[in-house]
Design a binder for these strands. Sequence first.
DNA 1: TTCTCATATGCATAAATGTGCATGTGTGCG
DNA 2: CGCACACATGCACATTTATGCATATGAGAA
Lengths: 132, 132
Amino acid sequence: MLNNYIDTLKALADPNRLRLFWLLAHIDQRICVAEAMDVLGESHYNVSRNLKILLKANIVTASREGKWVFYTLNNDGSAFNQQILAAVRHIPAQEFSGEIQRCQLRLNMRRDGQCVVGPDSPEWQQALSNHL
Amino acid sequence: MLNNYIDTLKALADPNRLRLFWLLAHIDQRICVAEAMDVLGESHYNVSRNLKILLKANIVTASREGKWVFYTLNNDGSAFNQQILAAVRHIPAQEFSGEIQRCQLRLNMRRDGQCVVGPDSPEWQQALSNHL
DNA sequence: TTCTCATATGCATAAATGTGCATGTGTGCG
DNA sequence: CGCACACATGCACATTTATGCATATGAGAA
């Protein structure tokens, strides 16, 4: 009873996961674990497990492509989950610290729409410092 | 950063508080602690503290009237909080076990719109058994 | 196959959370 | 005033949760 709703709320009641979900809600694009790590500046364990929790809450979906696993907003969720998504979309970007910009920067490193560099790469470090 | 949003989500990510908030979202009426105790069948500590947590999250308001403290939906919250309220309204009554009916039963015990019996009263026990 | 890299997950620990008990605060009544 | 009742809150304890480490899985490249 109520478990689905509680799972969704708990999944988002954590700053790192809320950042992850908010980012997905705004870029309207899939993102892989390595990219999320760079954008959020979080460790691998952290990003991987937190995405898994969002997945179990059924608010994102995952699909493997070669080595990479891409996560995406789940647009086929319950009415409740869709309202929750609408709520998260109302959180203004000022509440975050450049996630959107860093994400654009990271997505620009793709080739033909595919992620080609792993997490914490020299390329990413350089792109980051160039951007300051 | 993000604290307001996290507070709201955490406040609702608990079955008892979600029940409380869902009830307030559906009866469209204020309710005092004693009434909430009877309707939800929870202890005083539990109801009082959980309502306080909803209050701190700014999704309900409180007002004292004599001995009684009435809690109500907060309709002046942030856009985020209002969307969250819309989400909670989408949770169907089947997810609960007669909260609405028990609440009607309890509100019928009021006189002139005022609560007149305390928690766990014989009157309430009798009303409950008559209703089965 | 073996190696490398991206991702996932079990284990241990520290921090946060929910609940019960006891006590404190505030209000109304006699 | 003193008492009763509705409600609030600090403390202790059990459970949950978030994180880091280590290791496992899975896919591509040599």
